[in-house]
């Protein structure tokens, strides 16, 4: 685990605005690329974090706490927010085969999260939503 000594193996952030989420996204890009992952993994981790957090920011479920940790064979993302109970794993998936005139982007963000994550576990503790997401390396 401690192969990359000197480089941060964990990112923690508190997010309340889209500006802060944008800054975190840039930080994720900078730090996770130092972890020696592929460009695709880097992009997918950033996308998972943004799609999960942007809903919480949009609906004012603040503050959003984000932790991203580099393990031996997995990147673990933990996101918690203070909103009302919401389990994103139960949201129905959008029909991605609909033609243009019938399409809207509702649910697309969580669809990406489900697509790119290897596991997603939702729990509710002390009035907070907790999402534990794993991305295998």
């Amino acid at each position: 685990m401690a192969h990359n000594s000197g480089k941060p193996m964990e990112i923690s952030a508190t997010i309340c605005t889209f500006e802060e989420l944008h800054d975190l996204n840039l930080k994720v890009h900078e730090i996770v690329s130092d972890w020696g992952v592929t460009d695709n993994v880097l992009f997918e981790v950033a996308l998972i974090v943004e799609e999960c957090c942007s809903n919480s920011v949009k609906y004012g479920a603040l503050p959003v706490e984000v932790g991203i940790r580099h393990g031996a064979s997995v990147i673990t993302i933990i996101i918690t927010d203070g909103g009302k109970a919401f389990d994103p794993t139960t949201v129905s998936t959008p029909d991605v085969t609909l033609p243009l005139e019938e399409r809207d982007v509702g649910g697309l963000g969580l669809y990406f999260v489900n697509h790119f994550a290897d596991s997603i576990v939702y729990s509710r503790e002390n009035g907070r939503n907790i999402l534990k997401i794993e991305k295998k390396l």
Binding site: E51, G109, F112
Partner: peptide
């Protein structure tokens, strides 16, 4: 980079 916000 693009997210669902950009796809919208």
């Amino acid at each position: 980079y693009i997210s669902s916000a950009g796809l919208r």
